[in-house]
Design a protein around this nucleic acid. Sequence first.
DNA 1: TTGTATGCGTTATCAA
DNA 2: TTGATAACGCATACAA
Lengths: 336, 336
Amino acid sequence: MPNIKDVAREAGVSVATVSRVIRNQSSVIEQTRNKVLQAIDILDYHPNAFARNLRNQKSKIILVIVPDIGNTFFHEILKGIESVAHTNGYQVLISDMGNNAKSEVQYLHALSQKLVDGVISLSATAARSMIERISEKFPLVVACQYLEDSPVPNVTIDNIAAAKTIVQYLIDKGHRRIAHLTSFPDMLLYRDRMNGYFKALAENNLPIDLELVKYDAPSIEGGKRQMELLLELKKPITAVFAAGDTMAIGALKTLKAAGKRVPEDFSVVGFDDIEISSIFEPSLSTINQPKRLMGEMAMKKLLKIIRGEKLKSLQDILNFELVVRESSGTINEVGN
Amino acid sequence: MPNIKDVAREAGVSVATVSRVIRNQSSVIEQTRNKVLQAIDILDYHPNAFARNLRNQKSKIILVIVPDIGNTFFHEILKGIESVAHTNGYQVLISDMGNNAKSEVQYLHALSQKLVDGVISLSATAARSMIERISEKFPLVVACQYLEDSPVPNVTIDNIAAAKTIVQYLIDKGHRRIAHLTSFPDMLLYRDRMNGYFKALAENNLPIDLELVKYDAPSIEGGKRQMELLLELKKPITAVFAAGDTMAIGALKTLKAAGKRVPEDFSVVGFDDIEISSIFEPSLSTINQPKRLMGEMAMKKLLKIIRGEKLKSLQDILNFELVVRESSGTINEVGN
DNA sequence: TTGTATGCGTTATCAA
DNA sequence: TTGATAACGCATACAA
């Protein structure tokens, strides 16, 4: 590979001049510039990014850590991040941790090794102390995952309020026995959503029945399995609030297979509004997170940190939206 | 940020020794090593990756260019790539070109700038000449996209044979008027699948009717739209072969909305076997591409190139599989 | 407007 | 087993 020296020799100028031409600085006379350009062309020269970054101490690359690239929930967020990044001259690289906490730590290290200028983590499963320690020294933003009393900049929605909203909606539709499908209790996100569920029940003087709360993997299979159990309850339920759309779809599948009519006999609502929720039939009522905006906000926050600007707020709480589709409705007295 | 010099000073040794400890080379006596380790700990030192890469002229990072990260088709492929990469000490970074050819070129440049040790492109929309030129000098593998008579290493399936297989399956089920939903005719992939469709018809002495071939965006909406048109045909059809699963799902949606029974009145088959195809109801019959294997093979090929080993073959053609689900079946004489 | 010389942080070669 | 020092390729302060 030719380097800047080779080009300088070929063009009969100094390396400094070549460098100026590469970064098209103005202080090079047309004629000299052409000579250099020609030499670059002849040698098929490409600046070495490593050397450049070493010199500049920055890469203009930001890294996004995604818990699982197979989860469509993250796609829109990525689009938001990419759009802001690109208009600001940054490249976005994505790393898939495959739901493996160890690899998050590894990638976080890329930051401290200065391979990238900043990181947006769509996860927060690494040890909290580590995240906070890294955040002290390097540009890091956490999105989607709310962090309690943490000094790490993050952008999220209010999961408690959102869950409360959608459960209240079910209650307004006449449902009284509402089950809750949830997942990993060690993730704050699920605890928050469950809290919202409890709050809505409490505010309407409905009993909290822990038999109606089911835990499983946040997948279609998990939703299917738990819905099957719920159907066996002696005292039947009329609605299910799943803490994630995939679980909700699983529940719908079980109901369809069992011959239940949705929403006439049964209402199902989810959370996140991922792509499949509007495609599946019946389409799913759910809470829409402003995914694209979330990505944009996170990237903007990161840019500010990189540039050393002062953050107005450490934490941005965005608005969610209740999306009513086909999978939920007024309870059918006859059907029960 | 502390550097290796600071550590050396703190530990009272030379930078060379520190470097040896970092890379845990054996030729450092226990006692010295401990001193260094302690210094590293005290200063919270992290080696600078830029400098390291500059020195080594390699990053142990490979880049995967994905046409659209929102397309679930690519997820399994990514998993395959990641698994092989990780077991060989490589990190995988993903870049989303958002179906934008220009950005592919940009990312390809990351290669020639030596930011990464190799690239796997799941696309091939950049100018062919450029891809071939880069491939001459840098480790590059193209997957999913078959390249005709090209010297660029790639791994793919035989799209013509696969399309022929699934259309033959429809014919075997009694279908005679089979429509074809396809997309961008400038993409070889779609041309190949259409060729397979034509071949199957020809081999069974069925007429080729270009009125039955519809072009649209490779999306659910595109499939919906064209299916609506197909339903208006004077001489009705009984089956549709879509060149992609998303279009097939769109077709299914239109049919359901129109009150057609699938598969009693109508058969729909797709191509790719993406995640939603088995989730949607009715589940979709389709051609399964060995996505994970494809990713693994591509990464293995890339590794060989990086290591300067000789490739046994430039092109790997993998086996596809016909997956029969609920959306297709024997033609119902009564229904028509 | 151009050139010279130094440093970015690391690794590798050679000598001690 | 350890240390001194020369690269790696580029950008920039300073001089011309």
